[in-house]
Design a binder for these strands. Sequence first.
DNA 1: ACAAAAGTGTTTGCGTTACACCCATGG
DNA 2: CCATGGGTGTAACGCAAACACTTTTGT
Lengths: 232, 232
Amino acid sequence: MTSTTSEYLPNISYDSVIFGFSGEKLKILILEYHNMKTFALPGGFVKVDEALDEAVKRGLSERTGLDEIYLEQFHTFGSMQRFKPEIMKRIMEEQGNPVEDHWLLGRFITVGYYALINYKNVSPTPDYLSDSIEWYDLDQLPDLMMDHREIIEKALEHLRIHLDHKLLSFNLLPEMFTMKELQQVYEAILGESLNRANFQRKMLSLNILERHDKLYTGGSHKAPFLYSFKKP
Amino acid sequence: MTSTTSEYLPNISYDSVIFGFSGEKLKILILEYHNMKTFALPGGFVKVDEALDEAVKRGLSERTGLDEIYLEQFHTFGSMQRFKPEIMKRIMEEQGNPVEDHWLLGRFITVGYYALINYKNVSPTPDYLSDSIEWYDLDQLPDLMMDHREIIEKALEHLRIHLDHKLLSFNLLPEMFTMKELQQVYEAILGESLNRANFQRKMLSLNILERHDKLYTGGSHKAPFLYSFKKP
DNA sequence: ACAAAAGTGTTTGCGTTACACCCATGG
DNA sequence: CCATGGGTGTAACGCAAACACTTTTGT
C-alpha cells in the first residue's frame, strides 16, 4: 500500500468482462498496453466519492462509448498472487511516467463485473494507458495479465447460469428479432446447439416475448415472426 | 479517504454473515458495540500482505474460536450510502480513542461472506471494539448498522439457492446424523416444511450419503439409519 | 414443383409430488 | 397390540427431449 493521495481509492479496482455478440461467435473486449504485448481486461478504479457500480459504468462508457449498459457483479478477487507491481511499473515507464511510489503500484483487490452487448453498437476507444482495445474470439484469447484468464472463466460460468434471467437486461438484440436470432445468442453463449422446436416452446413459455408481424426477407422460405421483449 | 498508514488496507472491509443452526431455528451471529445499542455483523479488515479469503478466516476465527470454517463469498457492496463516519467515530470515542483522521473513518467497500455452522461448537468472543456477540433468531434481529440488513438478505438468498451444493462443505451436522436431522437443516434454512418420503429419496439420489448402522434411541418406534457424507 | 426455413404436434422418458402402505420398536 | 416414527411403493402430474409433420415462401 502506498500513502500517495489521489482522487481514487487505493487498493481497490474493478475488472470488466465485456462479452460481445453479433450473430455468430461470442467475443471479449481485451486491451493491450503500449508496445508491451501485455493484454488485460478493461478495468479501472473507484473515485473517493463514487459508488462502486457507478465507477464501473463510467469506466466502461469511457472505453466503449456505450452508455446504459447492464452490468452484473460476479466475484471479488483478493489473493496475493494478484500483486505484481513490476508489470504496472513497466507500463508506466513506457508511458514516460516513471515513478517509485504511486498508488497504482500498490496491491489491488479487484471486483469482477460482466456485461453482454452487441458489438456492432460499439466503438471501443483505448484509454490513456493502453494503445489498443480489440474484440477477441472466446477461443482465441491472447495470454492475459495476472489472473485475468481466471476472471473470464468465472464470468462465463455466471453468464451461462443466469442467461435466462439476464438476457432481458442486456441490450444485445435489436428491438425486434426473430426466434432464430434469439436461439443463436443462446447457442453462442452456451457453446452448444439446441433443438429448434423445443427452444421455441421454452422461450414462449417464459412469457417474456411479444409477437409482431412477420419478416419478409426475400428468402425462399416461410417468413418468421418478429418478437420483442415485453416491456412491463 | 485518509492517508494514515497502518497494517491494514484502507477502504476495504469484509462482513461475515454467520448462520448458526442446532436442531431448530436458524440464527445469525450479531455483535453489539460498547454501550452504543449499535448492532452489526462481525466484519474486519485485510492486512496489506494478506489474501482476502485469509483475512476473513482469520477474523472469524478470532470472533468465534472456530477454525477451518467453510466460507462463501457472495457479493461486494460499494454504494456511497455505506459512508457513515459518525457511527465509527462515536464507537471509537466510547472506547476512549477519539481521533479526527484515522483510516477507520474512511469510506469502505465491503465484501460479503457467509458461513453455516453448528453453534453448539462455537464460543463467540467479543473483539476489542465490541462488547457483546450473540446469536439472534433470523426473525428477531435487532436494528442493524448501515446496510447490514440488506447484506443478510442477500446472504440468505445465496444460501438457499446453493444449499444442495454447499451443505457438504459446511461442518454443520455431526459426523453421523439421521435423515430427519438432515431434513430439519433443510427446513430451517428454506423456511418451509418438506415431504418426508420425497426428501429421503432426493437425498439418496444425490449419491452423497453413506448409510451406517441403525441408531437405537430407546424411543417407541423404528430405529433410523445413521448417515454420513461420503468422503471421496 | 421444389427446397429451405419456420411453426406446430406427438411420443417418450424422467423427476417431482402426494399419498398410501408396511416395518420396527418400546410401552 | 398399539402408538409412533421410519422406510418403501405407486399413481399422477408436469416438463423437456426427440422427432415427425405441416405450412409458408421465392425460385
